[in-house]
Nucleic acid binder design. Structure first.
Length: 219
DNA sequence: CCAGACGTTGTT
DNA sequence: GTCTGG
DNA sequence: CCAGACGTTGTT
DNA sequence: GTCTGG
C-alpha cells in the first residue's frame, strides 16, 4: 500500500515538472502521514493548479473529517465499484507529487522500513482522486486518496501493494482523459525504482528530517 | 422502490 | 452523490 | 503506515 | 485487541 511518503523538491522544481503556475510556499517533508497536508495537481480549465490538500478522501456528503483517515488508499480495481470512489474517478483525478514513499516489510514480529524512489531521486507522481468537503461552518477542505495496485516484481520483495505512479508523458491523460482511458494507466510502475532499508525512526511521524532517508548502515 | 452505507491493509 | 441490500 | 489511547456524566 | 489521530 502506501501509508507514508515524502516530498522534498523545491517549489520551482514542482512548478516545472507539473507545469503549474501557482506554487504555494512549500517546505521539504520527509515523513508525510495520513491526515496531513501535501500538494496535489488538479486540472483547472485547460491548465493545471497545485492545491494543498489533506491526505484521506472525505466525500462531500460526509458528516465530518474522520472518514478520511480510513480512505488514504483506493485499490485500482475497485474505483468504479465503490460508492465513495466512482464519482471522483470520473471527474476529480489528481496527481500527488512525491520524491518517494515508504513500505514496511514484516519480519516475524519486527518490521523493517524501506524507502522507495526512482534511481535519480527525481520527482514522481502518484495517481490520486480528490474531493472538496465543506463543514457546516468554516472553510472548505480539499482531500485526496492515493490509488494502489499490486506490487511490481522488485517491490514485491518487501510488500505486495504499491501506489500507482504516473509517468510524465501520461500526466495530462490521467487528469483529463475518459475513465476508460485513465484506467489503462493504473499499472505497477517498474522502471528504475530502488528499495533502500532505512532507520525505524521513520515509524514515528514526529520525526521529519533528512536523515530519515539515509541508507541503514550495515551492522 | 427506499434505507442505509459509503474504507484499506496485513497477519495468523 | 452513488451503490448495495432488502 | 505507526503510535497511542482505550470512559461517562453533568456542569460551568 | 481494536480504534483514533497524525
Amino acid at each position: 500500500m502506501c501509508g507514508r511518503f515524502y516530498l522534498t523538491a523545491p517549489p520551482a522544481e514542482i512548478r516545472k515538472q507539473f507545469k503549474v503556475q501557482n506554487v504555494p510556499a512549500l517546505m521539504p517533508h520527509y515523513n508525510i502521514a495520513p491526515t496531513q497536508t501535501s500538494p496535489i495537481v488538479i486540472a483547472e480549465g485547460k491548465g493545471r493548479e497545485l492545491h494543498l490538500a489533506r491526505w484521506g478522501l472525505v466525500p462531500p456528503w460526509s458528516r465530518d473529517l474522520s472518514l478520511g483517515a480510513r480512505m488514504i488508499n483506493a485499490p485500482a480495481a475497485a474505483l468504479e465499484e465503490r460508492a465513495a470512489y466512482s464519482a471522483p474517478f470520473r471527474s476529480q483525478r489528481c496527481l500527488v507529487p512525491a520524491n518517494g514513499f515508504f513500505e514496511w516489510e514484516a519480519h516475524g514480529s519486527k518490521k523493517q522500513p524501506y524507502k522507495i524512489a526512482v534511481r535519480n531521486g527525481a520527482l514522481i507522481a502518484f495517481a490520486g482522486l480528490w474531493e472538496k468537503w465543506t463543514p457546516e461552518s468554516g472553510d472548505p477542505v480539499e482531500t485526496f486518496t492515493i490509488i494502489t495496485t499490486a506490487a511490481s516484481k522488485l517491490i514485491s520483495e518487501v510488500h505486495d501493494r504499491m501506489p500507482v505512479i504516473i509517468a510524465p508523458a501520461d500526466y495530462q491523460l490521467w487528469l483529463t482523459a475518459s475513465p476508460a482511458t485513465a484506467k489503462k494507466l493504473l499499472l505497477p510502475y517498474a522502471s528504475g525504482l530502488t528499495i533502500t532499508p532505512i532507520s525505524e525512526r521513520v515509524n514515528n511521524i514526529q520525526n521529519d528530517d533528512v536523515e530519515l532517508l539515509l541508507p541503514l548502515s550495515a551492522p
